[in-house]
């Protein structure tokens, strides 16, 4: 619980360049619908970093890190793309039957240091950081985080989703487009393809704007990495798993490393 909270601050805040707010912004991607019938259907997807699930109110998600992959593994063109002030959006044409993966993936280095008594921050790639002449700076600290934010959409019969084998991901024992109130969903938490035991996963229902408490659910993976989620009601959910990984090194200093995974799903009533 504590670690997750801290994670959200350390990851989400630097991503969006916010220095002072202590709010836990959440990054998400939500499709107009995740179950489709018929031929050649369109979906629209909205992606944002916001306080409320799933309402944009802070920052857009950069679309250059977003990929839509068809059931056969083809990379699809994102159409009608827009990156606004508070959200990004695009549309995807689903010509194949089966399950599509739409994912944002990005690895970023976060740097903080002290200069003339003031705290400075920088985010970007290692190459960009190298140009900053950071060596010898006071209180120099590095963090490097891989973030994957995804949603799955199915036209027709759901199909198996190929594992990525990198970072944190879920292996879906229950298909993410086959979630129903009253049924238990079972996912396996993987890091670089390996099952992760004792991993805390946070589940939050959307529309938190219309209730007084976040009502987050925390589930822990078992010895084989499996988590079980019993949905409190039908609706859209935001699920996050964060795992701190082996520290790295940059400019002769240790780098705190982590991998973050966010999945948004629809849970249908019976």
């Amino acid at each position: 619980m504590k670690r997750i909270k801290k994670t959200l601050l350390t990851i989400a805040l630097p991503i969006i360049g916010l220095l002072s707010t202590a709010e836990a912004h959440r990054i998400w991607m939500i499709p107009s619908t995740s179950t489709l019938s018929g031929e050649d259907q369109w979906i629209s997807v909205e992606a944002a970093i916001s306080n409320d699930l799933f309402f944009p109110n802070h920052y857009p998600v950069p679309l250059k890190f977003v990929k839509a992959t068809s059931p056969s593994g083809k990379e699809l063109e994102l159409r009608s793309t827009a990156e606004g002030k508070i959200r990004s959006s695009f549309e995807v044409l689903l010509e194949e039957k089966g399950s599509y993966r739409i994912a944002y993936e990005n690895k970023m280095l976060f740097v903080s240091w002290k200069e003339n008594g003031e705290y400075k921050r920088f985010r970007g790639t290692r190459e960009q950081a190298e140009e900053k002449e950071l060596k010898g700076k006071e209180a120099l600290k590095f963090g490097e985080y891989f973030t994957r934010v995804e949603t799955i959409v199915t036209s027709g019969t759901p199909s198996d989703l190929k594992l990525k084998g990198t970072g944190v991901e879920f292996s879906f024992e229950t298909h993410p487009n086959d979630l129903y109130f009253g049924e238990t969903a079972r996912f396996q938490v993987l890091l670089d393809g390996e099952p992760q035991a004792e991993c805390t996963v946070t589940v939050i229902k959307g529309n938190d704007r219309f209730r007084d408490s976040v009502d987050e659910i925390e589930v822990k993976s078992d010895s084989e990495g499996f988590i079980e989620i019993n949905w409190p009601s039908a609706g859209r959910y935001w699920i996050e798993a964060y795992i701190e990984t082996e520290p790295g090194e940059f400019l002769g200093k240790p780098v705190t490393c982590g991998s973050d995974y966010v999945l948004t799903v629809e849970v249908l009533p019976e």
Partner: peptide, 22 residues
């Protein structure tokens, strides 16, 4: 035309899940 009526079959959602989509 163009099987457009099939677009909304998913809204008969239990049937779609159990049978239609397959």
């Amino acid at each position: 035309p163009n099987k457009e009526g099939e677009t909304w079959l998913k809204d008969i959602r239990q049937w779609w899940r159990k049978s239609g989509r397959n």
